[in-house]
Design a protein around this nucleic acid. Structure first.
Lengths: 146, 146
DNA sequence: TGAATATACTTGTTGATGCAAGTATATTTC
DNA sequence: GAAATATACTTGCATCAACAAGTATATTCA
């Protein structure tokens, strides 16, 4: 029995990594081309705030499955761009609540449309049953690794 | 007909992004825990050199589907860690050929085993037919976006 | 109540990326 | 053969990430 040769190109890791990078880059480009100074990572935060405005950094970190320093610095950058505000909580001074600014709120429809368009581009000509299966597999991968 | 609400959590982009990040992080951790000071991105370069030693940065960039600055800096870091050497080509002085060092070469089996283990962990309990479909879908996504 | 612990967040360090611009060397073209 | 163009690579700048360590505030508990 010959030892199976490892081939980077055929591996789940590489395919995932590359597809993910292409998608983030495409979304960034779509945002940029439409005149929105928002990155994919910032969009993830904005999405959470569109679901519910005024969340703690900790909540945002948990929901987006990333660590607190990342959120802390993302919020810094988003404040610079005028997308959100960081309001210290009076009752518990450890806590910051993050709120959309008017500017951030006004972008919702446009950014959502661009995100949907990007997903459509990415899933063009893919059988919807197979896409469903792929999404389930990705869920299982996430479950296995978390 | 109600407008479909966009949900980040259900989107292809988010699932891809998150699964990919988890996998890179897991592989990095597996390398680190085993005492190898190698990142996932560096491993991608090493893999190409295991296939064929002595490639130009441009070839490495093309094969790994990333831009030249990334490869240039990855190679810098890999030289720092003693994994590869950058040899200027006499016939065409614009070209650098990247070669594995002994240290880099000796790691092949261990790193490959760790990469395979990571993929096994990630695909645990996933039906092999469905995994196949997922890989095909990922290929199509890459094709659609490149 | 005071010390220990927990929680929420920030900062430092290192590694990676995208994009634009720069340098050096080769090749093409007139 | 000189000017224009192409190629291979590097550098600068801004953003993001992982991990470890730090700060400030709350809570627990003895």
């Amino acid at each position: 029995m010959a030892k199976e040769k490892y081939l980077l190109d055929d591996s789940l890791g590489y395919k995932l990594f590359h597809a993910s990078r292409l998608m983030s880059n495409r979304l960034n480009k779509n945002f940029r081309d439409a005149g929105f100074d928002v990155t994919y990572e910032q969009w993830q935060i904005l999405s959470r705030l569109y679901e519910k405005d005024g969340q703690t950094q900790n909540q945002l970190a948990t929901k987006n499955e990333r660590d607190q320093p990342s959120v802390s610095r993302l919020v810094d950058n988003m404040i610079k761009r005028g997308l959100v505000a960081r309001i210290s909580n009076k009752a518990d001074k450890r806590i910051n609540l993050i709120y959309l600014t008017d500017k951030g709120r006004e972008m919702e429809n446009s950014l959502t449309a661009l995100a949907l368009k990007t997903i459509e581009d990415a899933s063009d000509s893919i059988d919807s049953k197979e896409l469903e299966i792929c999404l389930r597999v990705l869920d299982q991968v996430r479950e296995n690794l978390k």
